[in-house]
């Protein structure tokens, strides 16, 4: 096994929404076990970039690779559907608005994919759900329905749901932006714990402090391009680009 090969690699990613170019040729890679935070103003394209990694957004140009396999390869419709479903099973995604399945219990939210997609036995899947819930501190909610959970609890269940597929990477799309301030920490804590277990993670976030604490590398995006990237220490303490400086200044003052 070649461990120096990047886990995620994005080359020349371009994306248009109508006439608007939202990704202007982005290159970046994430090493195995690395945690990359993507920051930048709203509309900078950071969420679009993240969503194009698991093909929720289709790129108009460029390539995305996961662990040596091209995600957005050219295939006929049917073959691509099979290919992308397989690739997505290896990437966990956590959404800003949780997107738990409201008609299913917490246990079912977590077990439906392992049961239906991996053919896991129900009892085994439930044991797995319990283990994942334990990890996010919600084992006692296993039979609750999403409507009964707080926002922070919902997001932790959503993380457990993604982890139950034993993904190679986790993608976080502003996982705490929709939460009340007092609920942000419990979700951040779970993400930090994942980081300590060397999960490969890409985190799109508005929280500079969290990005500084947890990330190995920070990418600053603006207007569909990477303006600057580096270690948190470099980027936050000593930004080289004027655009980065003004963004961080606004954030620290606001």
């Amino acid at each position: 096994m070649n461990d120096t090969r990047p886990m995620i690699e994005v080359r020349g990613a371009r994306k248009f929404f109508g006439p608007l170019e939202v990704l202007k040729g982005i290159d970046f890679s994430v090493a195995r076990g690395q945690i990359v935070a993507v920051i930048g103003p709203s509309g900078s394209g950071k969420s679009t970039l993240l969503r194009s990694i698991n093909h929720l957004e289709t790129l108009d140009g460029g390539e995305v690779w996961l662990d040596g396999v091209q995600v957005n390869q050219k295939l006929d419709r049917r073959s691509f559907e099979r290919h992308i479903n397989g690739v997505r099973q290896q990437m966990g995604m956590v959404f800003q608005h949780f997107n738990l399945f409201p008609h299913l219990s917490v246990a079912e939210n977590i077990t439906i994919a392992p049961i239906k997609l991996k053919g896991m036995a129900k009892a085994e899947a439930r044991a797995l759900a319990l283990k994942m819930l334990d990890k996010v501190g919600l084992a006692d909610k296993i039979d609750a329905f999403p409507a009964r959970l707080s926002g922070g609890q919902k997001q932790r269940v959503a993380i457990a749901r993604a982890l139950a597929m034993q993904p190679k990477v986790m993608l976080f799309d502003e996982a705490t932006s929709a939460l009340d301030p007092e609920l942000v920490d419990e979700v951040n804590l779970v993400m930090k714990q994942l980081a300590s277990e060397h999960m490969t993670m890409v985190i799109v976030t508005h929280e500079m402090r969290f990005a500084a604490e947890v990330a190995d590398r920070v990418i600053f995006m603006a207007d569909g391009a990477v303006v600057e990237e580096g270690s948190p220490a470099e980027l936050f303490r000593n930004p080289k680009q004027e655009r980065t400086r003004s963004f961080l200044k606004k954030f620290l003052n606001g």
Partner: peptide
């Protein structure tokens, strides 16, 4: 909500499966 389909797809469910179960 569109997010339901997206969440199902992100787990690896096909479009038909997402429709049927989610």
């Amino acid at each position: 909500d569109r997010g339901q389909m997206e969440a199902a797809r992100s787990l690896g469910f096909g479009e038909g499966q997402s429709m049927r179960w989610i």
